[in-house]
Design a protein around this nucleic acid. Structure first.
Lengths: 118, 118
DNA sequence: TTTGACAATGCGACAATGTTGCATTATTAT
DNA sequence: ATAATAATGCAACATTGTCGCATTGTCAAA
């Protein structure tokens, strides 16, 4: 694997903890080809640098995957806003099927956010 | 809303608790048009009869949504098998953002299943 | 039972997401 | 500087999912 300025520019977009789809990345860096963006996002996921999240229907979203991160998401059914929540994964141990081992998990909470209640 | 034999045939596929994508439904009932299948799956979701689940990357899966069901999924990172698990949602209350209300949730556990450990 | 209103379906076209092959360009070690 | 090879751009493609519109099916009222 060689260095690449374009790859760096893609990763930098996520440095503030932003949650982005491939299309959004394409929009933010129009001079980089779509295929390159898709390839690099997959690469980052393989390397454990980014994490895939299913918060938008039919589209994969990506965000930084920090080790020991228990970062999960609340999605408002009304305005589709995504709120970040911290989850303790202790309770998960008792849920895992017999003989299986847990590597990671995705929790999507859905409901009505504070703003939409007012 | 009127009765429809085709709609009944689509729903019947899920009666054994099967987890199916739209394409799989199309494959099982080739004489029903794709658009009809998509329309009816969405309809069932609106009515709360089916539930959408993101267990396969980039494709929506559907399964029966029973009231009070705490049915969730463990997906093997190795063989991609989906194992059904029952989850107590008591712990979720403390996780919900301030002022928000929880309507439902999706938990995808990922790791190595029993078979792939052996 | 027949008719009319309207829901459901089929067909075709379309948009969006994501992947792949291949020629070209960039990086790196020698 | 050069050769090996990784990264990129481009184009084509597959798949998922949606939509408009003509046709067919369902149901209730006459």
């Amino acid at each position: 694997m060689k260095n690449s300025k374009k790859r760096d520019r893609i990763l930098k977009l996520f440095s503030n903890g932003f949650l982005l789809t491939a299309s959004q990345v394409c929009g933010l860096i129009p001079d980089i080809d779509r295929a390159t963006i898709y390839r690099n996002l997959s690469l980052f996921v393989e390397q454990g640098i980014l994490r895939e999240v299913n918060v938008k229907k039919g589209v994969m979203s990506y965000e930084l995957s920090k080790i020991g991160d228990h970062h999960q998401h609340f999605i408002c059914n009304n305005c589709e806003k995504v709120v970040h929540v911290e989850v303790d994964d202790k309770f998960l141990k008792q849920v895992i099927p017999n003989g299986a081992s847990l590597e990671n998990f995705e929790l999507n909470l859905k409901g009505k956010c504070e703003d939409c209640h007012a």
